[in-house]
Design a protein around this nucleic acid. Sequence first.
RNA 1: CGGGGAGUGGCUCAGCCUGGUAGAGCACUUGGUUCGGGACCAAGGGGUCGCAGGUUCAAAUCCUGUCUCCCCGACCA
Length: 476
Amino acid sequence: MAQAEKLTTRAENFSDWYVELVRRAKLADYSEIKGCMVIRPHGYAIWENIQSVLDKMFKETGHQNAYFPMLIPESYMHKEAEHVEGFSPQLAVVTHAGGSKLEEPLVLRPTSETIINANFAKWIQSHRDLPVLVNQWANVVRWEMRTRLFLRTSEFLWQEGHTCHATEKEAEEETLRMLDVYRRLAEEWMAMPVLCGQKTDSEKFAGAVSTYSIEALMQDKKALQAGTSHNLGQNFAKAFGTQYQGKDGQQHYVYQTSWGVSTRLIGALVMTHSDDKGLVLPPKLSPVQVVLIPIGKKEDFVLSVEACKNIHAELLSKGIRSKLDEDESTSPGFKFHEWEMMGACLRIELGPKDLAKRQCVLARRDTAEKQVVGLDSVVERVAAELENMQKDLFVRAQKLVADNTFVVNSWEEMCEKADAGFLLAHWDGEAATEAQIKQELGLSTRNRPFNLPQEKGLCVKTGKPSVGRVVFCKAY
RNA sequence: CGGGGAGUGGCUCAGCCUGGUAGAGCACUUGGUUCGGGACCAAGGGGUCGCAGGUUCAAAUCCUGUCUCCCCGACCA
């Protein structure tokens, strides 16, 4: 077993580092089909953890899971004008089935607003049927020109929530409630701070009245839109005739929302926390929280394995995701590197020297710190370190955002700081100005954060009046 | 679609200029010695050199055509 090739470092080439890491940490690979991704078990385990967190929060907010067809009649896509315009370029279309040409082509869902509304229209008759609060776990297809594992692939996994309400106010509340669910997922579970705010008109979802997003900052100081929540108003309801009879006896169109996060979150995790040795994952979501590495030869190895098995069983009984690596054909050093690459949060080394002293070595993935721990207290120590690591990762990520967020007051500053991170700048609110800034500097508006005090000012590009600052950043 | 590269075991590539019938590293299989930060030795399996035609006694190598993929510019959770 010779020394494996080093990972490209983040400083050398962030992009190469990311792709190599995703593949070598066994998260995912490109498939034979252009732009499609194979998610390997280790990567899928992260997704499952995210799913269970979200499912719990969706239940708490009164939502139920449902499932709608993947194939959508093409005509559905045309019912909402902006929607079809927004998605047409990315559609994959089925024209033949059962050995003959279809009368009407079917599109592979790029998102399910249309097919779901066709059903909501049947479900809803009365104000007593409202609100309707459903979520769907599904795959969607968007034929992207340029792809990137987890961040942009032709097919991806996500959840999409779809709700119907009697009033505009309820719909807006729901939109913001679910954005906050995403914020909690990002901050409390992914240890990834995010900016919550409203998207500009040009960046909003095709068919929405307003779109809100959570925006995260990656280690290369580019922004990643990590989740979106849309207030759809009555646009789709009118297109599909989704109406209810109110207490007043009149027919009213429902007010709707939709919101989603995808497997892109796994890419976000990687680009937020990982380092040049491989994957670093927040303990709450890591498939492997602790890995046990027995050390020794022959009888010593057997004894080490026995001791590890005891700890392993105790960790599992405490609900800690533990993994015992008892492969005898690889050396301890090899295992250390492999599990660092794979993102195991903590490592327990245990060999003859430790056994003699009834202790083991506990190492942390994020800080590389090692400590000697008595066998009697190792389980408590592990639980404590997992909590510490979760907190520390969040604090470190917060510092990254704080250190790379700048208030920008002139075009010169804007040019100077174009690659520096989140830029808070005044903008005149014109789509043309926004497009020009994107064209010239590659900076797009991310959102207008709720917690950013809105004071009047002058647009950095045109000098025209601005109602408040928005966040600009280069983005994925 | 505009600009630039590449197609050779599972992966990364060498060989091509100057034709002689295919190599290395990694991975894999078997056996042995190792094991506290990527172990070593030995033996072994695996390739119609993208495809089609041409030149030649002989083509991975030269010529012609063709296909595919990757990277950079317009889309995007």
